[in-house]
Design a protein around this nucleic acid. Structure first.
Lengths: 344, 344
DNA sequence: TTGAAAGCGCTAACAT
DNA sequence: ATGTTAGCGCTTTCAA
């Protein structure tokens, strides 16, 4: 915690002139030493460092910023409470550090909506912005992108003139279908995510993959909540329609499905296989152990950081990029062979 | 999103001198107008505002800060992904705003541990710090508290010389026991949270309440994961010990218990009642519908903000306070009368 | 290798 | 009600 440290524990904050005076050198020389610039002799270096330590000197970021016109800070807007955003943040920090940037966070919550978060971060003198799942429309995004370099994660942004990094959802859904077909499933239902971001792409990927395998797509409406999974499972139980596998719109929905089926005495994956989407912490819980489609948080975060940094450190007017990442299928315990068909 | 706005959309940022020049007034007068200080006549006000708009002027926070030596910014360290922290953040923003402060966030993640988050926030020139669930020890906390006003949430801090706001866990556990006893339960087991923060207090509250009702405490070791609930339920199923109610150490553990019991055909709450702790989003899911003990996030956040602000805006050397909040029992669908006793 | 001087954009006395 | 003057703490030419 950088404990209280030496020097005056409280009150007056030492300034660079004072350090220089104590070291018996000029302000500028002290400045060079403090920020490790080449030039100063070993002797002066030693003297300044000792004086700084003695006074408990800490450079004033505001003054530095005023002078340099650069903060080397990246702002990130995200949803606290969203596990995938937590994974992304975890990866954003090292990525930013490698590029020589610090990170400040702004939450997107009802009491502090996206535009407020953005303004706050800009006031915190960040030079570039990462929006994890923007809710701004294309016009607002474009306006923001003019003010400073912006990258959006999880949504397309190139149409608004900003970079974006996102998973290729159609491919993820297709991979899930492929796995199920490999396991012998033919009647595979998709509980979709309605109008949630990404849902349309997943639906599209599912449909295309089914047709590719010569199978009939079977989509039922849903959303990205447990509720929707519960309802879908209910219909499955009522209808007993010979369906042996379900691709849910996301993990929450999948958990609703699995839960309801199992409580009704249906064996998962013995009778019915279920696949989720997102590989959220939920899916990884051992008592759930959900087969699901994962996005690579580490790579996503890294590419988004690098996109912004690239503009910051030079190429200001590259055309906006839309980076698509391949999702990865994580096979766990809710999928199995279709051999043990329900006898309907 | 404060769209791109008028003025030079890009490139040169207008300065206050330029605005003043265009408005035909002095720097200081322009300054007064810009920050809405009393004094300037309606005419000058109008002129300055018009000029500012025309140039797309935005005050430079770095310069302002350098001059004023105050940022009116509060730093908050939290765990992204933790739903309760999300609730707190939601309440922190309006609380800070009412006090005239802004909020900057720093995440506590493996790649960016607490002390780095703290340093980052301090560099972001925050004047006070809120630690949501500090992991620093008392010595580090004390060192930090010397540098700037600090409040910790969810853990005691007065011994380290900083303010703290937390739920009175013993009372929460006691309230849960009281409810179960009211419902006629006598054999109530507590699956504890091991060494997790708060677990000891909950255990203590449970024990005291049981004794108060003339009942024998029955504590089994656990932790704050679903796993632990699964194991505890397993033991319940094996033993068939006539236990009719379980107080889990937290919601995750409770969900593990409920899940396992129900899959084994035990009716919750018909055969066994289960109470969680925390009222996390998990507990609120309708298909889980867990009776649980809730902390008041809104009040917690508000009191913590006010504690820090109070020190910032005057009383620097109040003695540290440890504010205890009463938890609230949220009765949902996993508790019921003990009448339908399991016949063992 | 070191120092002197200028100035980043703003606010806060102190005049007027 | 408005303008003048001095810096805030730092970096950065430019000279020595």
């Amino acid at each position: 915690m950088t404990s209280s440290g030496p020097g005056p524990p409280n009150g007056h904050r030492a300034t660079l002139v004072e350090v220089a005076a104590l070291a018996g050198v000029s302000r500028s020389l002290a400045s060079l030493v403090i920020r490790g610039a080449p030039g100063p002799s070993a002797a002066s270096r030693e003297a300044v460092l000792r004086a700084a330590a003695e006074l408990g000197y800490r450079p004033d970021p505001a003054a530095k910023l005023l002078r340099e016109h650069r903060s080397r800070v990246l702002g990130v807007v995200f949803d606290p409470g969203d596990p995938f955003h937590a994974d992304l943040l975890e990866a954003v920090y090292p990525a930013a550090e490698r590029c020589g940037y610090e990170v400040v966070l702004g939450a997107r919550v009802p009491t502090h909506p996206e535009h407020r978060a953005v303004e706050g971060l800009i006031r915190s003198r960040c030079e570039g912005l990462l929006l994890v799942g923007a809710e701004a429309d294309a016009v607002q995004l474009r306006g923001l992108g003019v003010r400073l370099p912006v990258a959006v994660i999880g949504r397309r942004g190139d149409e608004a003139g900003v970079d974006s990094v996102r998973a290729a959802d159609p491919r993820g859904a297709a991979a899930a279908v492929d796995l199920l077909v490999d396991l012998g499933h033919r009647r595979i239902r998709h509980v979709d995510g309605g109008r949630h971001p990404g849902a349309a792409e997943r639906r599209r990927g599912y449909r295309a993959a089914m047709r590719r395998h010569g199978l009939d797509p079977d989509v039922v409406k849903g959303d990205h909540t447990e509720e929707s999974g519960v309802r879908a499972a209910g219909r499955l139980l009522d209808g007993a329609e010979g369906i042996t596998a379900v691709l849910a719109g996301n993990d929450r929905c999948a958990v609703g499905v699995v839960d309801t089926l199992r409580r009704a005495g249906v064996d998962v994956p013995g009778d019915i296989s279920v696949i989720g989407y997102d590989d959220s912490r939920l899916a990884r819980l051992t008592h759930i152990d959900l087969t699901t489609v994962a996005q690579d948080a580490e790579q996503t975060a890294r590419l988004a950081v690098e996109a912004v940094v690239e503009r910051l450190d030079g190429d200001v007017d590259l055309p906006p990029r839309d980076i698509l990442l391949n999702p990865r299928l994580v096979i766990r315990g809710t999928t199995g062979p279709a051999s043990a068909l329900r006898r309907t």
